[in-house]
Write a protein that binds this DNA or RNA. Structure first.
Lengths: 223, 223
DNA sequence: CAGGATCCACTATTGGATCCCG
DNA sequence: CGGGATCCAATAGTGGATCCTG
């Protein structure tokens, strides 16, 4: 697998200039340019399109917990959309650190940090057809409006409160208008130690996700 | 079938006093009081509960196109709700007269007239169990808020505009946030003459319906 | 394990079709 | 036919489970 390393863009303008060259390209074509074979199915390559886009745009963070474009504080999200441009899936934001929620303000949370400036790259996946043929859309650079922030903060604080009261067991994915908490792991068997009042407990790792409705409104507002 | 004729209530207070006696009664018990046998299934008796309630409350209009309680201008709607009190179905409002929409203001429409003051009578139908055992809930007297009226009027005017542009064929039940247009007939084969520019056309009769979400918000706001 | 996400069985909702009565 | 509505097959949505890479 050839490793085409690209430099990280140093301004938003530079990033967007590069990002606009993505629009209209297929995932297969993008793979060709980067020397990465693209399988027919996403089933065993769920994050591949996202990783190709990362590389094409020169994202720096890798697996570290930092913005994809550190220098300019921009997070990258590729998301599957249908023919009308509507997201087909929820969007993963970050993992949740249950024991830290209580001591943190929303402003200082990893969740809010990630969402302050996001470059959305749509991938057409209307029919869930072959991955190489799926086409990339026009990228959208977004920051939450005051209203959107309010909704996100409300949801985040409800989660924090619920954990403080009853622990992680009280959290269901039904909570939250825009932001929900769901499993984030290789399998249901995965476990992580979570400190609590009596020492710690084992839990299935979880993450924050943006509901489809929320991102749909975000995208349609901007277009 | 014994015909217990009741007088029409002359004030809202009188109506509500009578309506409150419904709460807690089963449809079977109501049928007994009125001398009407109540079948197990609603499949061949879809409007029966509504008609029993009408009679118990002394509704006057019968099959005429007028408010159920003419003297006091109140429309009666019984609607099936689940255990949480949420409506399970859309609510029929009135039939649509396509050729009249263009000449009418919303204020003067049969649709708006019917919705200005409604007595909602919930019927518990959580499991769609035997009709005689279903219990009536606490009635709610409602008028649209300014916001609710705005939503209804927007929907109504979008329907009117669409008909003016492209005729009844352009109307789909997907139109409208709160108010939708759907078939209202004994079968898909039913046809009625609708006057148009070139004389008339035959169409499947249709009616205005309130979406479940809308009535759900109405009921929860009041409770 | 944290990062990149999608899969897919199940539930909820939609909306075209339908039923009784006077 | 217009009044009283519900039925139910098909579609959309939800959310628990899962997959690859570095």
């Amino acid at each position: 697998m050839t490793q085409l390393t690209l430099e990280e863009p140093r301004t938003e303008a530079e990033l967007m200039a590069r990002a606009k060259r993505l629009a209209g390209l297929t995932v297969g074509e993008l793979g060709d340019r980067l020397g990465v074979p693209v399988p027919e199915s996403t089933r065993r390559a769920k994050g591949l399109a996202g990783q190709l886009v990362e590389r094409f745009l020169g994202a720096s963070a890798g697996s570290r917990d930092a913005a994809d474009f550190q220098a300019i504080g921009v997070e990258l999200k590729t998301l599957p959309v249908d023919v009308r441009g509507r997201p087909k899936e929820t969007t993963f934001v970050c993992t949740i650190q249950p024991n830290r929620m209580a001591q943190l303000d929303f402003e200082d949370s990893p969740c809010w940090h990630k969402l302050q400036r996001v470059l959305w790259v749509p991938v057409e996946a209307s029919d869930a057809g072959p991955l190489p043929g799926r086409r990339l859309g026009t990228p959208i650079l977004w920051s939450p409006t005051a209203e959107e922030r309010r909704v996100l903060q409300d949801d985040w604080e409800r989660v924090a409160a619920r954990i403080a009261e009853g622990g992680l067991d009280e959290i269901t994915s039904r909570l939250g208008d825009a932001l929900q908490v769901r499993p984030k792991a290789a399998s249901a068997a995965a476990r992580q130690r979570v400190p609590d009042a009596e020492g710690f407990q084992w839990h299935n790792p979880r993450g924050f996700y943006l509901r489809t409705d929320f991102t749909a409104r975000v995208l349609s507002r901007i277009r």
